[in-house]
Simulated scan of single mutants.
Amino acid sequence: MDSIIFDLDGTLWDPRETVVESWNRVIKEHDKVDNELTSQHLKETMGMQMHEIGKKLFPELEEEERDRFMKTCSGVEIGHLRDKGGILYDEVEEVLEELAKTYKLYIVSNCQDGYIEAFYDYHKLGKHFIDYENPGRTGLSKGENIKLIIERNHLKHPLYVGDTEGDRNAAMHAGIPFVYARYGFGNVDHYDYVIDTFGELLEIF
């Protein structure tokens, strides 16, 4: 193995509290959306792309209006994440620092453009990662974005660490092993490796 590609939400951090705060600010100002969001709402959408999240959470809006609403939510969310950050899982900073001594590290997340950058900006962890990708920049699926990272960086033996069935499917699509972060948001039955804390990555590698 020469490299590790990470999912972000549910794998490196839990951003739900900050995201809920930012989205509810936008909801309060919208005359067609009444129900405030909770962390549980967001947990149910983890791993989805933004347009899929919009359809699930705001079915009452017409598609064009929903797209505008989601863009507004996204802009407010990224600004709020840059200011407040999320909750890093235990030992993330220490383990990334140790892994980066031996392996090339990357992030591929199903997020909007600017989201990973906000994670880097607040938590100052960008120094550990060589490259990253998301559908907000490419319009591609997670599996295709993983393949893009592999091709762009000439990786020979990468694996993917994530917490949902979608992450597993993306790793399979890219033809690489999958490490299931069982402490995250999803339930996965089949995997190559499993960790119950982020620190257990050091036992695998």
Score class of each variant (00 low, 15 high):
Met1Ala: 11
Ser3Lys: 04
Leu8Gln: 05
Leu8Lys: 02
Leu8Ala: 01
Asp9Ser: 07
Asp9Leu: 05
Thr11Glu: 00
Asp14Gly: 00
Glu17Pro: 01
Glu21Ile: 10
Ser22Gly: 14
Ser22Phe: 09
Arg25Thr: 07
Val26Ser: 11
Lys28Thr: 09
His30Ser: 03
His30Lys: 03
Val33Glu: 04
Val33Gln: 04
Asp34Tyr: 04
Asn35Trp: 06
Thr38His: 05
Ser39Lys: 11
Gln40Cys: 03
Met48Cys: 14
Gln49Trp: 14
Glu52Val: 05
Glu52Cys: 04
Gly54His: 09
Lys55Tyr: 08
Phe58Thr: 03
Phe58Met: 13
Pro59Glu: 12
Pro59Gln: 09
Pro59Cys: 10
Glu60Asp: 07
Leu61Ile: 12
Glu64Leu: 05
Glu64Val: 13
Glu65Ser: 13
Arg66Lys: 14
Met70Phe: 02
Lys71Leu: 15
Thr72Ile: 13
Thr72Cys: 15
Ser74His: 15
Gly75Arg: 10
Glu77Val: 04
Ile78Trp: 12
Leu81Thr: 07
Arg82His: 13
Asp83Glu: 15
Lys84Arg: 10
Lys84Asn: 11
Glu91Asn: 12
Glu93Ser: 13
Glu94Ala: 06
Glu97Asp: 14
Glu98Gln: 12
Glu98Ser: 14
Thr102Phe: 15
Tyr103Gln: 04
Val108Pro: 08
Asn110Arg: 04
Tyr115Trp: 02
Tyr115Cys: 11
Ile116Asp: 08
Ile116His: 03
Ile116Leu: 02
Glu117Val: 06
Ala118Gly: 12
Ala118Thr: 08
Ala118Asp: 13
Phe119Lys: 08
Leu125His: 06
Leu125Asp: 14
Phe129Asn: 04
Asp131Lys: 15
Glu133Ile: 01
Glu133Arg: 14
Arg137Ile: 07
Thr138Val: 10
Ser141Thr: 14
Asn145Glu: 08
Ile150Ser: 00
Asn153Pro: 10
Tyr160His: 10
Tyr160Thr: 03
Val161Cys: 06
Gly162Ser: 00
Gly162Ala: 02
Gly162His: 00
Asp163Cys: 00
Asp163Tyr: 02
Gly166Phe: 09
Gly166Asn: 14
Gly166Gln: 06
Asp167Leu: 03
Arg168Tyr: 13
Asn169Thr: 10
Asn169Ile: 02
Asn169Lys: 11
Ala171Asn: 09
His173Glu: 15
His173Cys: 11
Gly175Pro: 01
Ile176Asn: 02
Ile176Ser: 12
Ile176Trp: 10
Pro177Asn: 02
Pro177Asp: 07
Phe178Asn: 06
Tyr180Ala: 05
Tyr180Asn: 08
Ala181Met: 01
Tyr183Val: 00
Gly184His: 12
Gly184Ile: 01
Asn187Cys: 01
Tyr191Ile: 05
Tyr191Pro: 07
Tyr193His: 06
Ile195Leu: 00
Asp196Met: 00
Phe198Ala: 05
Leu201Ala: 01
Glu203Arg: 05
